[in-house]
Design a protein around this nucleic acid. Sequence first.
RNA 1: GGCCCCAUCGUCUAACGGUCAGGACACCACUCUUUCAAGGUGGUAAUACGGGUUCGAUUCCCGUUGGGGUCACCA
Length: 480
Amino acid sequence: MSTPPRVRFAPSPTGYLHVGGARTALFNWLYARKTGGVFVLRIEDTDQQRSTEENTQVILDGLRWLGLQWDEGPVFQGEAVARHRADAERLLAEGKAYRCFCTKEELEAQRKATLKGAEAFKYDRRCDRLPAAEVAARMTQGMPFVIRFRMPQEDIAWNDAVHGTITFHGRDLDDLIILRADGTPIYNMAVVSDDIAMRITHVIRGDDHISNTPKQLALYRALGAAIPTFAHVPMILGADGKKLSKRHGATAVGDYQNLGILPAAMRNFLALLGWSPGEDREIMAEAELIALFSLEGIQKKPAVFDTTKLEWMNGQYLSLLPTEELLEPVARELDRLNLNYGSREVLVPYINAVKARSRTLLDVARQVAVRLDSHQLELDEKGRSLIKQMGDGYFRSLALAHETLSAISEGEWRHERILAALKDTVEKEGLKLGDLLQPIRVALTGSTVSEPVNELLEVVGRSSALARLTAAARSLANSQ
RNA sequence: GGCCCCAUCGUCUAACGGUCAGGACACCACUCUUUCAAGGUGGUAAUACGGGUUCGAUUCCCGUUGGGGUCACCA
């Protein structure tokens, strides 16, 4: 009986939680849930300059929002520097690492000199050739030094759970610094030391770490530790095929939260970026996702983040969600618009009317807002072009609609009665129903898309509907 | 540039030597609603290229091209 797997998500709090990181976290979480393993959250805050408490909070909030509950942590890497240092010094004591007295400036000069060459820069190990007496002398002088790991000059390979065998050659690898002059550890040292200490069995991380893996593997061996399974998941790219970054617009998990994406939809969509259950499955509940997940199903090539498909998926989740669950987020959005609607219960018929026609919570809120308050009305692209297309016909239709509808009393203002009246007028005038209904739709909502017009009229109410028809006709007259 | 990874419709993907190369988003058409959407039905659209291996390659091997990642006393 083997021990349960232990996986980790290890973001550094130097920025927000971006969708690539969120997906890495999701895969780790799914793997842990699937295998009965443990999902550890580790905050890699060893870069004191760029790490902030605020970023940490944003990352934690993002994970919680996505429903990715961790089992251990958050563990802060910065709290374990003593161990990192001890591991580095052990390598030094065992002769697997050496002191390097080269300054940043010297290294920079060396780097410049080789940059033009056919190969990448590699430290020439000059300090490794220093006689022991010289090292001792420099130390008594108090010369600052870093500790460098002596990279074995042999092939380093591993069997990656998504890529298969990946091989690097020791001759291409640099003697990496593992401890800075100030005694703080460098990333690769800290990670290996932590993953060993936390008994991590599966390292599931982004493809951008592939080049770190041979270095870390060498460190594991030098430390005599068991080597975990590595799984490098593909990157997420923007629509232009370039690595997803801020210039692509929304890349932070929080951005999608603000856009009105539901956590379940985001999770489902992210899972399908670079992973497939193998059948033609798309919409999957949390339990199905967990049941179907496997490392084998992870794609090797990078995936392009398609916001349109995310919104489609969100629309699917939205229309399945009971209206009660939409009450709170929609109300919050309306509050932001400073809209007065009385009690939340008032919103129910409005949400019901627009829910199936929306892709995001923001869509829902905006449509509800327009129905509640004519000041929220804004002509959209299609509305504008309809008016242009109909010309005078639009004006006539509004007048006709107003005449027809004002004949209906407040007490009779029900969608059945409204539809009957409108049909009646259409017949008398020899029009098509759409000729009358589309203008009403645009006048009332600014958009060409809504629930059936008679229902829209009922929801908006008699006086507001008539006022909007008049206002639309007037503003049209003014603009001509 | 060195090293590493990768390559099926525009996008996300299925296929683990034999399929008319399937599904989803997007797009188009039709349909339903005496209305716009949604829904339903159908359609356009892909194995980057060149060599092998094989009776047979999307699938295995090699090369080319293209893309991505990475080369810090950052993580």
